[in-house]
């Protein structure tokens, strides 16, 4: 049994210590907004924040999260940055199949939380770990810039 702080709530999960955060969230806690894409930290679909920093939850065991704060897509609208990112995603109608977008939004929100005015290179660096098989990269870029503008206004 491990105790995880997810989106501000202390939750008990009956999983082994080596279980990736992804599967504790999805299978044990029933929070399916965080997606499984590769299981090897190669696609970013499973991105969540650990103490505010983006991590690949498919490769990070729950043991690494004890005493730390996990933030997922389900609580993005609760933060100023998360809200702005989601609004920009809606404005630009970014998603196609949408499956990668939880992870994209988590990566984008982490970028904007630490860098209010990201350049194209900053965006490339922060977002190149997130695959979008539907190819929405240009819309993601536009939405990030839009969210940055909203946040600095």
């Amino acid at each position: 049994m491990v105790t995880l702080n997810v989106n501000g709530k202390q939750l008990q999960a009956d999983v082994d210590a080596d279980t990736p955060i992804l599967w504790a969230l999805r299978d044990t806690l029933g929070m399916t907004g965080t997606k499984f894409g590769c299981g090897m930290a190669l696609c970013g679909a499973c991105t969540v924040h650990l103490d505010g920093a983006p991590i690949r939850s498919c490769m990070t065991p729950v043991s690494a999260a004890e005493g730390r704060k996990i933030t997922t897509i389900e609580s993005m609208s609760a933060s100023r940055v998360g809200k702005a990112v989601q609004a920009a995603w809606v404005k630009h109608d970014v998603p196609q199949c949408g499956y990668c977008q939880s992870g994209q939004i988590m990566s984008a929100a982490a970028l904007l939380a630490s860098n209010a005015k990201p350049t194209d290179r900053d965006i490339d660096a922060a977002m190149s770990g997130n695959v979008c098989r539907c190819g929405t990269y240009n819309q993601i870029r536009a939405a990030i810039k839009d969210a940055a503008a909203t946040l600095s206004a």
Partner: peptide
């Protein structure tokens, strides 16, 4: 016109096959 499926795809609530429990 805006896609009708966008909102659920930006807040994690959209249900894909893998999300069935």
């Amino acid at each position: 016109l805006r896609r009708l499926d966008t909102p659920q795809k930006v807040n994690g609530s959209g249900k894909y096959g893998l999300d069935v429990r």
